[in-house]
């Protein structure tokens, strides 16, 4: 039961408290670039979540069974980039062959996130910062992906609102977008400390 509880805590805290986009500033590029419309934000979110989970499932064994056993922990970044890039390419081919509808839905977003820092960040943090075991790592990646999607969806809603409202000339475009991003990030700091106390 305790193991299950810790998994739930990991999932919830990676979605809300430790949101990669809004509190760690990883993956800002797609956050600002692909959040203009709701459907593309959702598409990007689903693709990132999917790749994060699969990438963690592959990089965790590589770190623990190959790199650590040869004392090559310092090669982590390079090997992970290599593996994740190859993996995403492979996933794209496999999807095209077996699930064309999903391939169409994820579309251009799959190759875009090949080198996304949030994907690499979650793979590395699972091992270095949190030192999770395999199951915990997978759950954490899922949570980070969902958190990314949540941030994208919320932000795309905000951007649509901004587009419809009248704002001062000098704030139009990028300034208003960045200020909105800072507000939404500020709001997420309100979750700090909530999750740990939920299960007391």
């Amino acid at each position: 039961m305790d193991a299950f509880k810790s998994l739930v805590i990991i999932l919830l805290s990676s979605v809300f408290v430790d949101n990669y986009v809004l509190t760690r500033f990883l993956g800002i590029c797609p956050f600002l670039g692909v959040s203009k419309k709701l459907d593309s934000a959702v598409g990007m979110g689903v693709a990132v979540t999917f790749v994060m989970v699969v990438a963690t499932a592959v990089t965790w064994p590589i770190q623990h069974y190959i790199l650590n056993s040869m004392n090559l922990g310092y090669m982590q970044t390079i090997v992970f980039i290599l593996v994740i890039a190859a993996l995403v390419q492979f996933i794209e081919m496999a999807l095209k062959k077996f699930i064309p509808s999903l391939h169409k839905a994820l579309g251009v977003y799959l190759p875009l996130i090949t080198t996304n820092c949030a994907v690499l960040g979650v793979a590395i943090n699972n091992i270095n910062e949190h030192q999770y075991n395999f199951i915990q790592s997978i759950i954490n990646s899922l949570g980070v992906g969902l958190g990314f999607m949540l941030a994208m969806v919320l932000f795309s809603g905000m951007r649509q609102k901004i587009q419809e409202s009248e704002i001062p000339e000098s704030f139009k475009g990028l300034p208003a977008t960045l200020i909105a991003a800072s507000f939404i990030s500020l709001a997420f700091f309100g979750f700090g400390g909530i999750i740990e106390n939920l299960f007391k």
Binding site: I66, M70, M75, L82, M93, A94
Partner: peptide, 20 residues
């Protein structure tokens, strides 16, 4: 090790692009 990982990934991708 890095060369091996790269080679394996490359060969797998080449095979995948052929079979898939």
């Amino acid at each position: 090790v890095v060369t091996a990982v790269g080679l394996i990934a490359g060969v797998l991708l080449a095979l995948a692009s052929y079979f898939l």
